[in-house]
């Protein structure tokens, strides 16, 4: 079974915000809600890095763990979705999410906060595929149409990869091999340690 994942290649992202625009257009996202956004580190400084951030559809999703009404569920492909009919808009998922993915509309049934909205990996919601209710609450269900998320497909430099984790991991590995570098890439150290630092020799003075 394929497992759906996003992967943002910081070496390719040019901060065009095409992914953000594609998402908003595809799902008719209301003003003030950003399911996806581009984050830039050291903005304006030579060597700045940008990545596109949205729900990362975590394997062990903290939003699912903290939700007091258990409105989250995971599809067989690992896409983390939620049921807006159950959500009470408490905001616990927002506090738990390390990516700031959960969004809260400024108006609606629960006054200033509203029911949570987030990236669905273009997989719709618990309603029937392509139904009007599904589109209204969660946006278009591209996965059921045999497509992939609009943000990834629209990315001009293909910095944002989305799809089967095995396939996109292979694509990224090929890129790293062609570049001849990997450990310098932003985030590598956090994920895999700091291989650039030579390992301490046994008996060496520190």
């Amino acid at each position: 079974m394929a497992r759906m994942k996003f992967l943002a290649d910081a070496e390719r992202c040019i901060e065009c915000n095409g992914c953000v625009t594609a998402c908003k257009q595809e799902h008719e996202i209301p003003w003030g809600v950003n399911r996806r956004r581009v984050v830039t580190l050291n903005d304006g400084v030579p060597g700045e890095k940008s990545i596109s951030v949205a729900c990362m559809h975590c394997s062990d999703a903290p939003c699912m763990a903290v939700c007091p009404v258990d409105c989250f569920y995971k599809t067989t492909e690992g896409v983390v979705l939620h049921d807006k009919d159950i959500c009470i808009g408490c905001g616990y998922c927002f506090y738990a999410c390390p990516f700031g993915a959960p969004q809260f509309p400024q108006d609606g049934a629960f006054g200033l906060r509203g029911k949570m909205d987030k990236c669905t990996f273009c997989a719709g919601g618990p309603e029937a595929d392509h139904s009007a209710a599904e589109f209204k609450k969660y946006g278009r269900n591209r996965l059921a149409e045999g497509k992939l998320p609009a943000c990834a497909e629209m990315c001009a430099t293909k910095a944002l990869l989305g799809g089967d984790a095995d396939v996109i991991a292979n694509i990224y590995r090929d890129r790293v091999l062609k570049r001849g570098k990997g450990s310098e890439i932003w985030g590598w150290g956090t994920a895999y340690g700091k291989p650039d630092k030579p390992a301490a020799q046994p008996g060496a003075k520190s």
Partner: peptide
């Protein structure tokens, strides 16, 4: 309490020509 779950028979990821 109602439990969140996907609707039965929902199509998911497919390795189509488009993909």
């Amino acid at each position: 309490p109602k439990k969140a779950e996907a609707v039965a028979g929902s199509k998911g990821y497919q390795l189509t020509e488009h993909v």
